[in-house]
């Protein structure tokens, strides 16, 4: 946000183009938007520039290989990329293993509902706006939690966030998927 580049479903369509057609132009657009953000995020978390550059490239390569695992009904593209970057950071910088939850047996749908995908992307954007409107002190606490400046015991103070709507939406998406496969 605050950039001139298109937001929302455009990124969902770009990931789908990478998944379906190995579309290099769509990937380049994703790269231009997200790689500098991943690098900035990592550097803000205390990672040296050369490592941050390397990890950002690895994250974008993972996006290419795992495009078929992205579920736009449950996450925005930015959220999905955040989780890949987080896992790579733990792996490459903290040198610890990252236990990940079991995948859902049904996986993402081949053609997720457009409206649901759009709603999820917009919901994440609204969440970003809501965070931006928080009192400076609380916003700072949340940023420090995600940039690694708070220990897991200190994080409790940062948990009071307006997540009700987005959580219900994800919960519904999980339920609907389970129902369809049931």
């Amino acid at each position: 946000m605050g950039s001139a580049e298109p937001e929302g479903t455009d990124w969902v369509a770009a990931v789908a183009a990478v998944r379906d057609r190995r579309d290099a132009a769509a990937f380049a657009a994703l790269f231009r938007h997200f790689a500098p953000r991943i690098k900035g995020f990592l550097m803000k978390s205390g990672t040296a520039e050369t490592t941050a550059e390397e990890v950002a490239q690895e994250v974008m390569a993972t996006l290419w290989h795992k495009a078929h695992l992205f579920d736009p009904a449950r996450a925005s593209v930015a959220t999905w990329i955040f989780t890949i970057a987080r896992n790579r950071r733990i792996d490459a910088i903290r040198r610890a293993r990252r236990p990940e939850p079991e995948e859902l047996p049904w996986g993402p749908e081949a053609e997720p509902d457009q409206e649901e995908a759009l709603a999820m992307q917009q919901e994440t954007q609204r969440l970003g706006e809501a965070i931006a409107r928080l009192p400076e002190k609380q916003k700072d606490l949340i940023e420090r939690a995600y940039f690694g400046d708070l220990s897991h015991t200190e994080i409790a103070a940062a948990t009071g966030l307006p997540l009700g709507t987005i959580k219900s939406r994800i919960r519904l998406a999980l339920e609907r998927l389970r129902h369809q496969m049931g």
């Binding site: 930015a78 959220t79 955040f82 987080r86 970003g128 965070i131 966030l161 997540l163």
Partner: peptide, 8 residues
């Protein structure tokens, strides 16, 4: 999603 919003 909070992480995604911060990344953006």
């Amino acid at each position: 999603a909070v992480g995604g919003a911060l990344l953006e």
